[in-house]
Design a protein around this nucleic acid. Sequence first.
RNA 1: GCCUCAGUAGCUCAGUUGGUUAGAGCGGCGGACUGUUAAUCCGUAGGUCGAAGGUUCGAGCCCUUCCUGAGGCGCCA
Length: 477
Amino acid sequence: MIHRREIRPLLQHPPTGETVTVMGWVRAWRGNRFMVLGDGSGPETLQIVVNGEDFDEDTIRAIGFHACVGVTGELVASQGSGQSVEVIAKEITVFGGTDLSTYPLQAKSQTMEFLRDNAQFRMRTNTMAAVFRLRHALAFAVNKYFNDRNFYYLHTPIITGNDAEGAGEMFRVTTLDPHDPPRTEEGTVDYGQDFFGKGTHLTVSGQLQAEIGALAMGKVYTFGPTFRAENSHTTRHLSEFWMIEPEIAFADIDNDMDLAEDFLKYLINHCLDNYRADLEFLDERIQQSEKNLKADLRRPMGLIEMLEFTVKDDFARITYTEAIDLIQRSKPYKKKKFEFPVEWGTDLQAEHERWLVEKHFKKPVIVRDYPKDFKAFYMRLNDDNKTVAAMDILFPFIGEMVGGSQREEREDVLRQRMQEMDVHEDALAWYLQLRTFGGCPHAGFGLGFERMVMFVTGMGNIRDVIPFPRAPKSADF
RNA sequence: GCCUCAGUAGCUCAGUUGGUUAGAGCGGCGGACUGUUAAUCCGUAGGUCGAAGGUUCGAGCCCUUCCUGAGGCGCCA
């Protein structure tokens, strides 16, 4: 039986004068005397004073950067100035030494790319540990928010037989022999002989199934992995990411926007209230790394300041039509600084969204009522017959954080839209039946979980907010 | 998929108009010191210059192709 004190709670109420046992990894080893120990319970570390005369040489020699040790000793007020308390070591157990001549990490700041290549060790760094503690905090807050508001957590399938979701390229799931698959008479691969008796893929969205839940249990949400086989090379896309998709019955697009804004602010507040030290560490780190940048490349405000600002103020809310009008009257538009054209009927490009969020409103913006031509078939047609009740929430640095809509509950209109957009009815007969039998106005949205982690932590690359990122040409660990 | 940039020691980088034996800081290793805070000081080892071709008397440097990474765009969350 192992007994130890965790460093974070220990430092919250330091029992000065008591003998304590702590266990963790050596973060720094200075002057053959001072060991900085961290156990991951929080960003806090504890200084251990090792008097050479009290220990044999082998023990002293085994202490090194990122070695794993247990220490028992008296907790006392520190004589040094960098910490309030420290432990005078009486017993030291070295659980696992490190051969520093081959250990890849060093006690200095290292690039995110290098740490990504060494993901088996990167959570031992202060930055990554803070990021993943906050990732946990957000995941916990997601479940708490919905639970406290009578939503039910619905587990939608990861393997899907739907071939009609139209949300991008999918990963095929098959047990057929890739070198010699069974063929139909026409010579195509016969997926009728595959494991599930049909072609199957990894899910790109749980939304359609979540609608089943909403039209029975009122309010549900999904929170699980999602897969997109798109060849995206950006700092905001992963091939495997986690998505949160609430779906609510008896709700229109305004209810949907209110829910999304309240939800996002709750998640941020949860981190501000409970993970202050981690946020302060990340805030400091960003300011250090941006110190040498030109002023216009730096963030306009600090991380915590930005999070506090985001939860304090209402999000801006405009229609797509108003957004087009604003952009057309903007300075960069008049000076022809935008690469892409802006006119009613074209989708907003990243450069236009960034102008709206970062230059014009300087806060999150909800854009609603987009032209139906570039939105999904299930979004509810507005009375103007030109737009649908869709909404995107745009965040600074991130771009699209949330995409949602009121769903088309009118069966005849939905059928018409499916025909227009070439979605086959027979594949989604069950989806249409939700309208035939006991349908109602309902709405929902999707939140990219990693984008939220990026916003809260200030990390610049989405691959650094998921423990084991999957991206094109990259599936290590 | 498109565009730009990059790949030199374990890490981060320098390497001039192509010219002798490819450098620095950090880290490692050996030693000293022991109230340190990225500890300090002395010494020392370490490189198929991403890969394959080509040009040249001579290539880290120029050319071609490929691979990998970063950033931007598109697609989206």
